[in-house]
């Protein structure tokens, strides 16, 4: 390490520059009055005020946040109960096949998930729009919640439950006062991951969203296809700040629950 010290530092610095440059580049030009992503003319907030005065964009932002919060909440509830069910399942082979099925949506390419959900919704007659997007987001978030909650459940000493039962706790009480408090960090981490997956999803939403409904990712895509608009840059500035806050929040949650930070990386 001493010998390669400087080269190593230069290499790592270069990697960090490359990783952050595009993001900072976007944010830098969000303050450009010139209207393009080159030739910085003068400082302006106009693109930010453009974001906030564009009611359509604000509606899309609100939609995106509502879908993310709702889908994360519902996915967390289903996922937590699912993992409790899986952990206390006696039959090992059923348990293992449930776990494999659980991971199918995590490893499947987004395009395949999107296309197959599109077929499913058309077949059972769900109108494409808010409902289909929300249901899809719940669907692809559930396995992530399960993956975050399961290790916590496996860590739990089953004598805790026996003790509670011996002391006369009902099943509901055991769940509410023993299991849930113990796996809380896993639940928070799962909710959080589901939230970020939903906020970041593009491919699946792109397939199942109808004409009337749009989320931020899909909207940015159609804006970007039309060319460069500094409104997107302003949006990215806002999103960057929000993401940083979320990351810091997640970092503290995972530190408290001692989950490895690395679990936070996206698919």
């Amino acid at each position: 390490m001493e010998r390669t010290g400087n080269a190593a530092k230069i290499y790592l610095t270069l990697i960090f520059i490359i990783l952050y440059a595009p993001i900072l580049y976007l944010i830098f030009y969000s303050f450009n009055s010139g209207g393009s992503m080159n030739n910085f003319e003068s400082f302006t907030w106009e693109h930010y005020s453009a974001v906030f005065s564009d009611t359509r964009l604000i509606m899309i932002l609100i939609n995106t946040v509502i879908v993310a919060l709702l889908s994360a909440l519902i996915a967390t509830i289903i996922g937590v109960f699912g993992s409790i069910g899986i952990v206390y399942m006696r039959n090992k082979s059923i348990r293992n096949s449930l776990l494999s099925l659980n991971n199918v949506l995590i490893v499947s390419p987004d395009v395949v998930i999107g296309a197959s959900f599109l077929i499913l919704f058309t077949m059972i007659g769900v109108k494409l729009g808010f409902a289909s997007v929300l249901i899809s987001h719940i669907a692809f978030s559930i396995p992530i919640v399960v993956l975050m909650v399961l290790p916590k459940l496996q860590e739990m000493n089953s004598s805790l439950i026996d003790a509670a039962a011996d002391l006369g706790a009902t099943k509901g009480e055991i769940l509410r006062r023993v299991i849930i408090p113990f796996i809380k960090p896993g639940i928070f981490a799962g909710f959080f991951m589901a939230l970020t997956y939903s906020l970041d999803d593009f491919a699946v939403t792109f397939f199942v969203t109808g004409n009337g409904f749009s989320t931020l990712s899909v909207e940015i895509y159609s804006m970007a296809r039309a060319g460069i608009t500094l409104t997107i840059n302003a949006l990215s500035g806002i999103i960057f700040i929000v993401t940083l806050l979320l990351v810091v929040g997640y970092y503290f949650i995972s530190q408290r629950g001692k989950n490895p930070v690395g679990m936070g990386v996206r698919k």
């Binding site: 976007l26 970020t196 593009f202 999103i239 936070g264």
Partner: peptide, 19 residues
Amino acid sequence: IIIPSWINLLLKTYAFIGI
């Protein structure tokens, strides 16, 4: 290293249209 992976994929791609 992980933080950039949390930024919306579309925005990162869009940045390269400019770059």
